[in-house]
Every structure is written in C-alpha cells, then in structure tokens.
C-alpha cells in the first residue's frame, strides 16, 4: 500500500545527482516526501513537523556521498535521526525492581493491551530474572476483567491477588502491597482499568492508587496502531500520573507504528517493550532500528 520512501525520493533527486552538496532547496523537496511518509505512518502532525525541521537543519549542506544517490542519502539521514529520537539512554528491558516488593503500575486507554501485557511482563520477570511476582487487577469496571488476569496467572504460573468483590481500586492496591510484603514477593504488578485521558474521575482514581503504592515503574500501554491522538494520550497520562516508560502492543500487525515516535518525542520517556502477539511469550524489548524502518515503510 505504501511506496518505498527511497523509490519516491529517487525520482525527486534524479536530476541532482551531480551536485556537490545537499542544498537547502533539495533537502526541502525531499523532506516534503518524508513528511507525507511520516504522516501515513501515523506520526502525529506536530511531531512530524518538529522532526522535519530538525532533519532539515542537519541535512542542509552535507556533502553528497559518491557511493549512494542523494535520495538514499536523505533517507539515511532521516533514518538515523529517527533512531536517535527513538533510542533511550538506558537498556529498555531493565526495569527498576530492586527493593522488594517493587510495584509496577500498568495504565492506558481501553483495550490497549494492559492486562495481556501485565501477564507477559510477569512471565518475563519470573522466567528471565527468577523473580517472584504477584499480579492484581484493579479493574472493577470491565466485565470479567479480574477473571481475565486470574486465568492468565494460572497459565503462566504467577500468583494473582485473590478477588474480593466490591472492593475499590485503592483498597485493592493496599491489599496487594500488603500481600506482596507478607508473601515475600519481589515484584507486584497492578493492572488497571482502561481509561480515557480526559476522564477526570478515573484519572484521579489512578493517581490515588499511585500515591498509595509509589510505583517503581509506571508503564503506559499503547496500541501500536494508534493514530494522531497518541501525542495527547502520552502527554496527559505523563502529566497526571507520571509514566516511566511505554509498551507498544500489536506490533505483530502491519501498522507502521508512528505512535512510537510521537510518544517518545513528547514525553522523552523510553519505549521499553513491544507486544508481538496474544500469547504470553510475545513480548520483546524495544529496538529503535526496527521501528524506524517500519515508520519509513522500508
């Protein structure tokens, strides 16, 4: 469905091959194509705009490399700039879970993949790091949300906090904290109900939960197919709750994943994991190169 960006750019640049350096005009022409590619990949408009400006400055005046076409050269500059923006300083897989029991809070919009990712992360912590993990569902709204987490816990051999009907999310969080301490758990994970970033009541609720447990990690779980709203979602969740990282789900789909760039650019928070399926082992640590290539449609 999407043309390869290099091909598109090669047309634009054919007549420029012999010039010595990338002129401002050449780069502008090329970046118009790049802008379209970013928008087609669902990078949010303000982020695309900002990114193009940055690359414009970087690329203008660069000597044309002999071995590749100017089009390819711009693509490389764009690709490198993307990787640069997407890459965090730390190892994305290293969660801060010293000081047991370490709380991890999972938040996000409805249906983004929080419960599934809670299970996947718990399994990863158990299998790869030998951690003793407790999972608790604070979702008192969605039908059978608690059962869902319980079934996943049984599948992966991770304990879930016993379900007590009628308890509110803050009280469940307190109970999870206590149970985690008493039970000698290394980590306790709190799966929350999906909520809109504009829902003041529910955002307050999760802030209250945060204040009770002081999470070591607060992970925003976002659908990798998300469109332009990604910026607002990431900004609001970060402003109100304070996130420590992002998990992108459904990256096993054929979405181009521009939301990754949007969220990273506006929050500066690392993208930590990528969900690649519904099964409990379909979770990988984030690799900026792979997403950069996808965003550019290459």
């Amino acid at each position: 469905m999407f043309e390869n960006l290099s091909e598109r750019l090669s047309g634009v640049f054919d007549r420029l091959t012999k010039q010595g350096a990338l002129s401002e005009e050449d780069v502008k022409t090329a970046l118009r194509e790049v802008r379209v590619a970013l928008l087609e990949a669902d990078v949010s408009l303000p982020v695309a705009r900002e990114f193009i400006k940055k690359v414009q400055d970087q690329a203008t005046g660069q000597a044309v490399t002999k071995s590749i076409t100017p089009g390819q050269q711009v693509v490389k500059i764009v690709h490198d700039a993307l990787v640069d923006t997407l890459r965090g300083e730390e190892d994305p897989g290293a969660l801060k879970i010293d000081n047991p029991p370490a709380p991890i809070l999972m938040v996000g919009l409805q249906g983004g993949g929080k419960t599934t990712t809670t299970g996947k992360l718990a399994k990863r912590l158990k299998d790869k790091e030998g951690k003793k993990v407790l999972m608790a569902s604070l979702d008192v709204y969605r039908p059978a949300a608690m059962d869902q987490l319980k079934v996943l816990g049984a599948q992966i051999g991770v304990d879930t906090l016993p379900i007590v009907p009628g308890q509110n999310p803050v009280d469940i969080a307190k109970r999870a904290k206590q149970q985690a301490a008493l039970g000698g758990y290394d980590v306790y994970m709190l799966d929350t109900a999906g909520r809109l970033q504009i829902d003041e009541v529910l955002m307050q609720e999760v802030e209250d939960v945060r204040d009770v447990v002081s999470p070591r990690e607060t992970l925003l779980v976002v659908d990798g197919l998300t469109g332009q709203v990604a910026v607002e979602v990431a900004e609001e969740f970060d402003a109100k709750i304070g996130i420590s990282g992002v998990v992108l789900t459904r990256m096993d789909g054929d979405g181009r994943g521009g939301a990754a760039l949007s969220m990273r650019a506006v929050t500066g928070k690392p993208i930590r994991f990528v969900g690649l399926g519904e099964k409990m082992d379909a979770l990988e640590t984030f690799e900026p190169d792979r997403i950069a290539g996808r965003i550019l449609g290459m």
């Binding site: 469905m1 087609e40 990949a41 669902d42 919009l109 249906g111 659908d223 197919l225 998300t226 469109g227 332009q228 709203v229 979602v233 789909g253 054929d254 979405g255 181009r256 521009g258 939301a259």
Partner: peptide, 11 residues
C-alpha cells in the same frame, strides 16, 4: 473499528 486507530484502519 477503534477510533484511536490511525491509517491501519484502511488495511
């Protein structure tokens, strides 16, 4: 379809 989905809705 989910309204938060971007261009992938076309596919």
């Amino acid at each position: 379809l989910d309204a938060t989905t971007g261009q992938n809705a076309l596919n």
